[in-house]
Design a binder for these strands. Structure first.
Lengths: 349, 349
DNA sequence: GTGAAAGCGCTAACAA
DNA sequence: TTGTTAGCGCTTTCAC
């Protein structure tokens, strides 16, 4: 706890005095603006180092009258997780107005790389400070991201990473680990039973879904060889489609003792259980805590839900983009999105 | 996303102009200072409402030259969770220096109400804005908290609540729910096995431990009648003591298939498993993710860990105390501390 | 290349 | 009871 710092923090005035230059020059050096002799720059930097100066961002922004403009690009589609995410963006946007920060939200056709890169390309570079992208990674998307970066726009990938693009960072959970977690819970909850496990996925294009499946298979194969994991059912996050596909798959499987719903579109799954009357309900593990999955948990239809906090996701995205724009450091621990595990007992609220 | 607001936010100057008063008067009204006629107050408030004014906190703090002073009171004792908490306080303190916020940390004898209230009473009221208290609730502690509140100091309870005191809010998990979660996991992981479950607790004085036990018993009795929950082993968060008590309890139990370690002092538990060589390892559920419990999880000594994020805890405490001091609203969703469930698959890092 | 001075939105002496 | 004014730490014209 002890601090050896002088109590009064040094200011630009102190730097100016020590370096024997004017405030304007200090500012120029501080912000890397041209038009200062090298010797002067050195003098100022020396003073900064000597005094242990740290810039007061609040004061700087006040003086600048700076307004941050961030845009979120989300897939279209009315699934519960997306609604949650958008609600959080709206809520934060409201609170951030007093902090000179504007949030905007764009929706593009889901699982459609062209639509996504078109949307990114349509962004007016001049009045945007950062872009948060939730969508599939393809060459055209990579190019669009590269264009943003070339123009100094902060870019983060949201929920699903774009690892080979130039995005500044990824805001979301480690989806492979999330899949592993689901598998561990599935295996443990099944407690030695044998049988088949059905996996519901969204799209093979979606990196998050793919990674979850990877992690799930890995742990199932390693730790629970008595359980047979069936091929994925591609539900495209579409409740109707899922509800249609499910009965067929369940029948074909033979002895399905577990269902892992690794994507969105839980509504279809829930409705299936409402209409069917199964002798022995399989263990169900799903993703994302939403009003729908909460109810399913409470009623015992879902046994566990793996989730990521939507509020944290958007707050984190904004913090990271702002830090990136201001060339300020971030706190990695604070920005790490946790893989939340919910049983009916630990649901928040 | 659409906003109907005028782009240029109204400032105190606008209010002054519209209300036809001076800046000083506006400021007085804004800050509820006395010495303004009722009619004038009304005029100003009218203008504020009409313009939809929201105060720029950054500018206000800049002008005030305000420095927040917050103190954390933690129990003494070198257990891993406390170290984690203190490390987070130190880390945040460092980052907060540039935001005019000072954090201090006091340690008082654990499980000792008198020491705690003495420590609270010793706080210099004049130079403290808020106090975060982690300790047992007793009449003397309640009185000490009341004294703080009388002097306008913000008070939050940390980790364990002081519900009948006048603390402004509680920063920590719902410990009853945490206990319930532990029980659900225990029962599910045991998958129908019968036998006994040992509960390790810290102190009967510690509200958090008590509440966890309550929740644990509730769910075990309701959902897993085949499992017999034994009386608590009071380990006082002391690894040595725990290591001594454990073998006896295990032997006495007969057929212990599960251990719920509801408090700190996991080191003793881990050491016990290192020395003993059990035929069939019981399912172990512990609290708080620390370097020690991470390793135990990774090695399969612990099966699950219920936790609360130490970083979140202290950031939240600071945000809440600051908001309280500034009479500003908080975002309850952001301040809600989650009950984290960790398996070896979803450990962060 | 460098500096003087005004101003961002707000607060706090000090006058009146 | 109210207003005038200087100033928080930083940026930014506009001169020199």
């Amino acid at each position: 706890m002890k601090t050896g710092t002088t109590l009064a923090n040094p200011t630009v005035n102190d730097i100016a005095r020590v370096a024997e230059v004017s405030l304007a020059t200090v500012d120029r050096v501080l912000n890397g603006r041209p038009g200062v002799r090298k010797v002067t720059v050195d003098k100022v930097n020396q003073a900064i180092a000597d005094l242990g100066y740290v810039r007061d961002t609040a004061a700087a922004n006040l003086a600048r009258g700076r307004v941050y403009e961030f845009v979120f690009i989300l897939p279209e589609g009315r699934n519960e997780f997306l609604s949650l995410l958008e609600a959080q963006i709206d809520a934060l946007a409201d609170g951030l107005k007093r902090e000179r920060t504007q949030l905007r939200c764009i929706r593009v056709a889901a699982f459609d790389p062209v639509a996504l890169s078109d949307a990114i390309d349509a962004i007016e570079l001049s009045d945007v400070d950062g872009v948060a992208v939730f969508g599939p990674e393809t060459p055209s998307v990579r190019d669009s991201v590269a264009r943003l970066k070339r123009h100094g726009v902060a870019v983060v990938s949201l929920v699903a990473d774009l690892p080979s693009s130039e995005r500044d960072s990824y805001i979301g959970v480690d989806n492979v680990a999330a899949g592993r977690t689901a598998a561990q819970l599935m295996g443990r909850f099944l407690g030695g039973r044998r049988g088949q496990v059905l996996v519901l996925t969204g799209s093979m294009l979606a990196r998050d879904h793919l990674e979850r499946r990877l992690g799930f298979d890995e742990v199932m194969a390693r730790d629970f060889p008595a359980l047979e994991v069936l091929a994925s059912l591609e539900g495209r996050d579409d409740p109707e489609l899922i509800q249609r596909l499910l009965p067929r798959a369940m029948a074909a499987g033979g002895d399905v003792v577990g269902i892992y719903s690794s994507a969105a579109g839980n509504a279809g799954l829930v409705r299936y259980f409402e209409t069917q009357c199964l002798a022995k309900k399989p263990v169900v593990i799903a993703h994302e805590l939403t009003p729908l999955s909460r109810e399913a948990l409470a009623k015992g239809v879902f046994d566990a839900v793996i989730s990521q906090d939507a509020g944290h996701l958007v707050r984190s995205a904004v913090r990271v983009m702002r830090a990136q724009r201001d060339a300020l450091p971030i706190n990695p621990a604070q920005e790490r999105i946790r893989i939340d595990v919910y049983l009916k007992e630990n649901m928040p609220e």
